[in-house]
């Protein structure tokens, strides 16, 4: 069973729909016990890092995430769900995050003519485009597998560590090529 973690960080309809479109049944849960029993975990999220971390701790899902990653369980982080896997975020005056991945999440610098948030389709590793919506980015780290450029910064857009894969962009909103990434995850 594939569990989508609900920690009140945005709308899960798109993620559910995208898995349904590739024929994968999912369960939305905020119960750490359900997460622990799942074969695979999807960790989406949009919004602010601080309230996300507060909600993860309040529900006990923070420990469920750490246990799943430590056990090498297939785990898919998306957008804010990727960012909070890093050690800390500059958002909201500084937030301690889960620390599964080394490094920090920072705000895009202010560059004349460059809009923040980044909204739209951008390339990963100079190739295919995927759909991004974010104002903060994760630094490159030893587990970075995909790099994207915006506002003069090269940031982590894809990362892999053991059973964990995570994307800064939204595979569930990135058309056919996004669905292919979800299929890869479902097949692993």
């Amino acid at each position: 069973m594939t569990a989508i973690l609900d920690y009140r960080a945005g709308n899960l309809t798109s993620v559910r729909n995208a898995f349904a479109a590739i024929g994968v049944e999912t369960t939305v849960t905020r119960d750490p016990a359900v997460a622990a029993a799942a074969d695979k975990i999807v960790f989406p999220g949009v919004g602010a890092a601080k309230s996300a971390m507060d909600n993860l701790r309040a529900t006990g899902l923070d420990r469920a995430v750490l246990a799943a990653v430590a056990a090498g369980k297939p785990f898919l982080g998306i957008c804010l769900g990727m960012q909070v896997l890093f050690e800390r975020s500059e958002e909201d005056g500084g937030v301690d995050c889960l620390g599964v991945l080394p490094g920090a999440v920072r705000r895009f610098p202010s560059v004349p003519g460059v809009k923040v948030p980044e909204i739209g389709w951008n390339q990963v590793n100079g190739g295919r485009e995927y759909y991004f919506v974010h104002s903060y980015y994760a630094e490159k780290c030893p587990y970075t597998t995909g790099v994207t450029e915006y506002a003069g910064v090269e940031f982590t857009s894809a990362v892999k560590k053991g059973g964990l894969v995570a994307y800064q962009f939204h595979p569930e909103k990135s058309g056919r090529f996004g669905l292919e990434l979800l299929k890869e995850f479902a097949a692993c």
Binding site: T13, S14, N17, A18, A20, A21, Y131, H170, E172, K173, S174, G175, R176, G178, L179
Partner: peptide
């Protein structure tokens, strides 16, 4: 529409 497409 949401069920039929996977773009924003």
């Amino acid at each position: 529409v949401a069920a039929a497409i996977s773009i924003p």
